[in-house]
Write a protein that binds this DNA or RNA. Structure first.
Length: 482
DNA sequence: CGTTACACCTGTATAGGTGTAACGGTGCTATACT
């Protein structure tokens, strides 16, 4: 057993920090005693440091499965900046030659990042098999549950890969997981093997929670303008439609003096990169984004997150609002809700999940599928290759559909709750709630957000030197007559 | 599935009612082409 002092020396030596953040030491201790761990820690805990330090201590390679190329590139850059040279992101961005070289010389690297799709390649798995791994890491592990079954099925193959690699010590990391998502992750990665779960609260006390009901789109647009004019920038506005994101960005640009841009999968890689950089550097006040924006974005001073559309579920909602207030300062999350918005989410569910008829067709007609099968075709192709019966696949998607609808109803109930919103969220994530709630933490259903007074938040905040949480709490109390 | 934008109609209104079509997210990798 390694002593606390030795751990802290290692932390100082490799990363220059003198103290661990909450949760880090516990995770690292587990891994050093060769215990696989699922760590559910809020953003800003320094989750990456956990596996990086363990890799350093063992002086053996670490493999990290990550969902996005941009995320891998960020991590690689950070590690290189910290003086770590033997790092690689094994992605399609590499030239054929460099990739081929890297794959056949994996043992030369200490940190190897890759997407789950890369693990389909025989050469990659064969070369991974040769390594004596310090750790196998799954970053953003909620993707197993959220994306695996109907978007990126290769996420479902990670458990099998672990078996092939002879069960390396594994660390699964995520910021938001309900009990149900936790079960999905464990079931997939570990089966019946023992896993330690470290779960900290998803609650972020410095984010004020509000829901604003509107009758129609016009009213919603007006409210958006009012909010972005009054709230302290920078801020994020989330949409479930790329077109609307562009449209509202344009509208804000026309009606205010704010610097605004949009971010979604419909924009080119270079545009997306530029927008994110500008935002990080403080040159943009507002980004109008779809769910494409956010993973790995570590901007500390985002002051508000507005949702223009109803999100798919509370997990997504918490991921997205969790990008606010990472500096610990008071921030606000406002969900704008129009009753018809739920139809959009229902439609998205329908679009993703194949109908029974389609499942039957694709499961029966394997050889015809090459090339033009479309997204659902590719997905069904995955299940067919797993050797599942069409009945079983129908069952999987029918279950998936009812789960998604259930989650949608949960976030609907959140918008309508007459009780404390924070308490509702804690309960949803299966947390015990010993906190005494007062109305300074959230706005209840039917209460109007006092927009006039919100302006005070901005001005008063600007007037107060060394603005701290307490002074904000005073302002909030004043606002809501508490 | 339900909203919304827009064309069309009436019959002469910088108007109001009706009908219809459009629309709606998340990414990896491989491969063949320009």
């Amino acid at each position: 057993m390694i002593s606390d002092k030795k751990l802290e020396t290692a932390l100082k030596q490799y990363f220059g920090f003198s103290k661990f953040r909450s949760g880090q030491k516990e995770v690292i201790r587990n891994l050093l005693s060769r215990e696989s761990t699922l760590a559910i820690l809020p953003t800003g805990t320094g989750k990456s440091l956990c596996y990086q330090l363990v890799g350093k201590i063992y002086k053996k390679p670490v493999v990290i499965v990550s969902p996005l190329i941009s995320l891998m590139q960020d991590q690689v850059e950070q590690l290189r900046f910290a003086g770590e040279k033997k790092v690689i992101a094994l992605t399609s961005v590499l030239s054929f030659k460099r990739k081929e070289y890297a794959v056949s010389h994996l043992s030369q690297f200490d940190f190897i990042y890759l997407a789950p799709e890369m693990l389909n390649k025989k050469e990659v798995v064969e070369n991974l098999f040769q390594l004596d791994l310090a750790l196998f890491v799954v970053d953003e592990a909620h993707c197993i549950s959220k994306w695996g079954p109907d978007f990126r099925p290769d996420y479902l193959g990670l458990g099998e890969l672990r078996r092939e690699l002879n069960f390396p010590t594994t660390l699964a990391l995520t910021a938001t997981a309900t009990k149900r998502v936790e079960e999905d992750i464990i079931g997939n990665l570990f089966g019946t093997q023992k896993v330690k779960v470290i779960r900290h609260s998803v609650d972020r006390p410095n984010i004020f929670l509000a829901v604003e009901k509107v009758a129609n789109q016009k009213e919603k647009n007006k409210k958006v303008i009012k909010l972005v004019e009054r709230l302290k920038a920078p801020g994020l506005i989330y949409f479930s439609s790329k077109k609307k994101a562009d449209e509202i960005a344009q509208m804000i640009r026309q009606k205010t003096k704010l610097n605004v841009s949009s971010y979604h999968a419909g924009r080119s890689a270079i545009d997306r990169y530029t927008v994110q950089q500008q935002f990080m550097l403080g040159k943009l006040d507002v980004i109008c984004a779809t769910s494409a924006f956010g993973m790995g974005v570590n901007k500390k001073n985002i002051r508000y997150v507005i949702h223009y559309h109803l999100p798919a579920d509370l997990e997504s909602y918490l991921q997205e609002i969790g990008r606010a207030g990472r500096d610990g300062q008071q921030s606000i999350a406002i969900l704008l809700y129009q009753e018809s918005d739920v139809g959009l989410q229902r439609r998205l569910i329908d679009m993703t999940l194949p109908e029974d008829e389609m499942i039957q067709y694709y499961m029966d007609n394997a050889q015809k599928l090459t090339g033009h099968a479309g997204e659902q075709g590719e997905l069904l192709d995955y299940y067919r290759k797993q050797g599942l019966s069409s009945e079983r696949v129908k069952e999987i998607f029918s279950r998936r559909r009812s789960d998604k609808i259930k989650n949608l109803n949960e976030i609907l109930a959140y918008t309508n709750t007459h009780h404390c919103r924070r308490a509702y969220i804690k309960k949803y994530f299966g947390e015990k709630d010993n906190q005494i709630h007062d109305r300074s933490c959230c706005q209840l259903s039917g209460e109007e957000l006092p927009l006039k007074e919100l302006k005070m938040i901005k001005t008063e905040k600007e007037n107060i030197k060394n603005f701290d949480d307490n002074s904000y709490q005073r302002v909030i109390r004043k606002l809501f007559n508490l």
